[in-house]
Amino acid sequence: MRTILRKVFLVDLLQGMWVTFRTQHPKNIVTEQYPFERPKIAERYRGAPRLNVNPENGQTLCISCDLCALACPEALIVVGWERNPETKRKDLITFTFDTSRCMFCGLCEDACPVDALELTQDFELASYSREGAIFDRQILEEGIQPKKYVF
């Protein structure tokens, strides 16, 4: 008898529907409206690489030790340097970081002894060409500038 009543009044269905409707309450909505609403990125997030500069004089922190290039599993970092005849230290000339092959494992960041190379919270890495994914020193120091679209 009870089973018949359950069937007639669609109890099972209503139970299931109740779960669905319950989660439609505005405070239960979890969808992020991405381009309008920026997601909160964790502090340790491994995103676009950045080459830090000294904020005081704008000089690079990189000491051209090449450790990041050695640590990289994909060998996608190329450090170009020149020996400065006066200071006898290596001067950084170029720094290329091929993000098209990067898997953001963070090993380069771990290897850096002076915290010059860092993976930042920037995550908008799309570009129109493959070449656009290869970051040179300028992009690395200034950070990526994704195009802002107005909707």
């Binding site: 990125i41 502090e43 340790r44 997030y45 491994r46 898997m103 953001f104 494992c105 963070g106």
Partner: peptide, 11 residues
């Protein structure tokens, strides 16, 4: 993500 900085391929 908060712990190690990546969501899927965590390393």
């Amino acid at each position: 993500e908060k712990y190690c900085g990546a969501r899927l391929t965590t390393h």
